[in-house]
Design a protein around this nucleic acid. Structure first.
Length: 492
DNA sequence: TTTTGAGTTGTTCGA
DNA sequence: GTCGAACAACTCAAA
């Protein structure tokens, strides 16, 4: 690795006498905040009076343990393209670079008269460590480095129990949020930004190679519109059409009744503050805003318990008798478990990079409790395939499903995939959409085709084991085994 | 320090 | 078909 730091910088500066006369410049280091409105780092850069240099760095070391999955990379490509367009409308460019963030920032410091670097914080443990190091290194070189809260309503350390400890239970956490001074109002879109006279070199977006080599992303393209504009379209449509019916409709995966803002929030194309501000005070907004607080809580947990992406929050779960089985895991990932609702969910995920929340719970419960596969395997698959893959949310969700997290599901809460299917997809609409080989089965048979009569199956053109798999586990047997496995934790 | 009430999302069984 | 209880015990948060 090339050594960079003050010595190099000073040396370079000395060899470039013109450096001092160059225009003072402030870098806005874009990360998970790919928007122009309500972007505190950008606002700070403008307020600094220096020329504003927007930079995005594709940093292979940003998350060595959690490199972005294919779906996230696809999203990132399009979100960056959108950001480039929005910046161009304001006479700005987005300088794209590849490399470790520290090296890139110091390289830029040699190309411009760098006075400030501004960014919005991330809360993944690896990012925190990296950013801290960079901040110190920059400051040692006399470059002002400042970070801001761009993605949360409340910083993880702002919400504490009466004792000053982090919360471990959601309900008191959410109460504390609602009792705290309300989040600041979002800042308006920026229209006029002082731009540099000259621009440092930028890599072309395509050269970052974020798009998949094989063209599997058509379905993503049809489903999503990455970027700030798409985010606001979703939010406005949700507010106008879905918000008031949200509590009654949110559990039905065939409907478009949830906000689908998760990937936009993850990439910071819209901020939680903006969502909060837009919906607060609306009729019946509370149940949805509560979901935003779950996101806050997941970040709170990740911040205070940084090993939870890989280790169970409840230590006793280290000895849980998981049964690793590659064939079963593969069946689950491909949506070939023989349980139509589970398979529909897994296929929705594969095709669109997203899965309805209700179904996420069902497939997660199925992986962990019916198949007894380690929750980390499920988390990894989600990480690779979700466009909203987010370390805090993903970790929290899987620990919850596995029962090893804070405030987790009790051990006996084992979703019955057939019952959930009958309850939340009674008309089989969701299943027919994603498991078309079962399309012709009637509304009763479609939830559990192995229980259908021979005649019904024949009439629908379905041969089990040929067109659609038989269930890979029997529900009652698997449930009993899961209860026994959980009981074994208590015995020792 | 001790006590108390509560804790996202469910299922099954028996009356 | 509907309804309530049982399914564990523990930890958390606050009084």
């Amino acid at each position: 690795m090339q050594a960079v730091g003050c010595a190099t910088l000073i040396e370079m500066s000395a060899s470039v006498p013109a450096q001092k006369e160059k225009q003072p410049t402030a870098i806005v280091w874009f990360r998970k905040d790919l928007r122009l409105a309500d972007n505190p780092a950008l606002c700070a850069a403008i307020a600094s009076g220096a020329a504003v240099l927007p930079v995005y760095i594709l940093d292979p070391e940003e998350s060595l343990h959690w490199p972005m999955g294919g779906a996230s990379l696809w999203w990132l490509h399009h979100s960056l393209a959108q950001l480039q367009t929005s910046l161009a409308e304001r006479g700005l460019r987005l300088v794209l670079r590849k490399g470790t963030a520290k090296e890139v920032l110091f390289a830029l410091a040699n190309e411009v008269n760098l006075q400030h670097v501004f960014w919005n914080r991330q809360y993944e443990p690896e990012c925190i460590a990296r950013d801290k190091q960079i901040k110190t290194a920059l400051q040692e070189c006399g470059i002002a480095a400042e970070s801001f809260n761009g993605s949360l309503l409340f910083e993880p350390w702002e919400i504490r129990t009466g004792e000053g400890n982090p919360y471990k239970v959601f309900t008191p956490y959410s109460r504390a949020c609602l009792a705290a001074p309300p989040p600041e109002k979002p800042q308006p879109d920026v229209k006029v930004v002082p731009s540099p006279k000259g621009w440092p070199q930028s890599l072309p977006l395509d050269s970052l190679e974020l798009l998949p080599k094989l063209n599997w992303a058509d379905r993503l393209q049809e489903t999503w519109m990455p970027g700030e504009i798409g985010a606001w379209k979703h939010l406005r449509a949700f507010r106008l059409k879905k918000l008031s019916g949200y509590p009654e409709h949110r559990d039905y995966p065939a409907e478009v009744s949830t906000s689908r803002l998760s990937p936009h929030l993850h990439f910071g194309e819209i901020s939680a503050r903006q969502v909060w501000n837009e919906l607060q005070g609306q009729q019946d907004a509370a149940p949805y805003l509560r979901q935003i607080l779950w996101r806050e809580f997941a970040h709170h947990m990740l911040y205070y318990f940084p090993t939870t992406p890989t280790d169970p929050f409840r230590a006793e779960f280290r000895k849980f008798p998981w049964k690793m089985d590659a064939a079963r895991l593969k069946a689950w990932t491909r949506g070939e478990t023989g349980y139509p609702l589970v398979d529909a969910g897994m296929r929705e995920l594969w095709h669109t990079g997203w899965m309805h929340n209700r179904v996420r719970m069902v497939v997660a419960s199925f992986l962990v409790k019916h198949l007894l596969l380690p929750w980390q395997e499920g988390a990894l698959w989600f990480w690779d395939t979700l466009v909203d893959a987010d370390l805090a949310n993903n970790t929290f969700g899987w620990q919850w499903a596995a029962g090893c997290g804070a405030d987790a599901a009790p051990y006996f809460r084992i979703f019955n995939p057939i019952l959930q299917s009958r309850k939340f997809d009674a008309a089989g609409e969701y299943i027919r959409r994603w498991v078309p080989e079962l399309r012709a089965l009637d509304n009763n048979a479609i939830h559990a085709p192995w229980l259908a009569t021979v005649i019904a199956l024949k009439g629908a053109g379905v041969t089990l084991g040929k067109h659609y798999p038989r269930p890979i586990v029997d529900h009652a047997t698997a449930r009993a085994a899961a209860l026994a496995a959980f009981a074994s934790l208590r015995e020792k």
